[in-house]
Design a protein around this nucleic acid. Structure first.
Lengths: 238, 238
DNA sequence: ATGAATTGTGTCTGACGGACACAGTTAAGT
DNA sequence: ACTTAACTGTGTCCGTCAGACACAATTCAT
């Protein structure tokens, strides 16, 4: 497809308006903002160029005057939805507290824009905001004795946990009338039918359904990751 | 959509063949196997009912005699591609070695079927194989003093890391002629242009591009997670 | 032998991303 | 002032997608 150079230009290039020709009635920022709110409201699958154009009061093909294609548009949506990276300079408690706050902010953002997880996938051109998030995460680890590669791997590990959890808990299915209620009923039915084959899973499900749930999983994973990182930092400090 | 009951029936139900009518020329297993190899070869996006049917030498609509829709087919593909869970009973070294092997096996499977990560998303009906993988992972932690919820969160944490890394490294883009070569050139160009805004990121990229890469990230994350889990296990053992 | 159930097929629909030509608008160059 | 080139928005068209539906052919139970 070779969509990467155009995406990089849109994300990082300067918006030099041409001089001749009629003034554009739309703006790329406006299109991206409308697309984001539409994806937030109805999911990424419901976002089509046709419906987006109708929402803006224009025809579908007019959008292609602003973006070369849908792929580039979603790349812009991603970076805009991420928003500016948080400022962690005021956080006391060293790298651990800073990265904890960083992870929670990212989690909040992914809850606000669930489709981001589906878009921020695979090798891609990072935008200014995504790069700033990465920068902030890496900077939080600058005081430790970790190498550059280790710091990068650490940030990847944390984002992977946050994003993976967001992907599992906020994926489509929230629009159906009985989203996880019916699913839970089906799964417990299956597990009781096959309790002898999956004793551990049945027990874990039974004990987990009584306790709270997903926020616990987020904090649990972060605590384990930070504990493991702390051990490595302590080892490097010797 | 209400696709969950049908999916559960296909995944867990017994294949009772009706008695009257012509014998089916195809089988669901055959369709699923062909779909898997096609998704392996050309990616999930290239898998359409039309092309799948052509590969099988039948018309598109004939497939709908075997599966109610594409969603149910992908659910079957997922469980079939996961394959049987590994046997960890022979692994020496306690829960840590067992879970390490478990994670590596999962990693290998995701490398073989990269599209699995895109399918195994969100709340869904788990199939027998997926359930067996979960069961095996939970069983590896049975010796520790962790609660059921903690064991579940631990397995979720590990799978999240493995899957997240697989999603980032094996996503589409492998089909283009200059997959990550061009991307890397673009990103380094951007980073050198904005080195003052992202000093940590620029340094980390520079030092990371010289070292090996993704397999390191996998082992790095696993080591940190296991270290963190070991601390919790030790705490519970007191 | 007859009728019901089941399979594979052909045709059709609505939605999708996107190519392309065209008319209208604006500013630069003469 | 006038021409001309560049740019914007629109309408039309294409190929592909998942799926609905009716129909003919096949097979078994009665």
């Amino acid at each position: 497809m070779d969509t990467q150079p155009r995406t990089a230009e849109l994300l990082w290039g300067s918006p030099d308006r041409p001089k001749r020709g009629p003034k554009p009635a739309l703006s790329l920022e406006q299109i991206v903002a409308t697309a984001i709110s539409m994806a937030d409201a109805e999911g990424l699958a419901a976002l089509s160029m046709q419906r987006l154009a109708e929402d803006l009061g224009f025809t579908k093909m007019s959008l292609y005057r602003y973006t070369p294609g849908k792929a580039e548009l979603t790349a812009l949506m991603l970076d805009a939805a991420l928003g500016p990276a948080p400022d962690l300079s005021e956080i006391d408690g060293g790298w651990r507290a800073a990265l904890h706050e960083w992870a929670l902010r990212m989690w909040a953002g992914l809850r606000r824009h669930p489709w981001v997880v589906d878009v921020a996938v695979g090798p891609r051109v990072m935008g200014p905001n995504e790069m700033a998030w990465l920068e902030t995460g890496l900077a939080a680890l600058s005081g430790t004795g970790l190498t550059g590669g280790e710091r990068l791997d650490s940030v990847v590990l944390i984002t992977g946990h946050v994003r993976s959890l967001a992907q599992q808990t906020t994926a489509p299915g929230a629009e159906t009338d009985t989203p996880e209620k019916a699913l839970n009923a089906i799964m417990t039915g299956i597990l009781t039918d096959n309790a002898e084959r999956y004793p551990e899973a049945a027990a874990a499900f039974a004990s987990a359904s009584s306790s709270s749930g997903q926020d616990d999983a987020l904090e649990f994973g972060l605590a384990r990751i930070f504990d493991g990182l702390a051990a490595l930092v302590a080892e490097r400090a010797e």
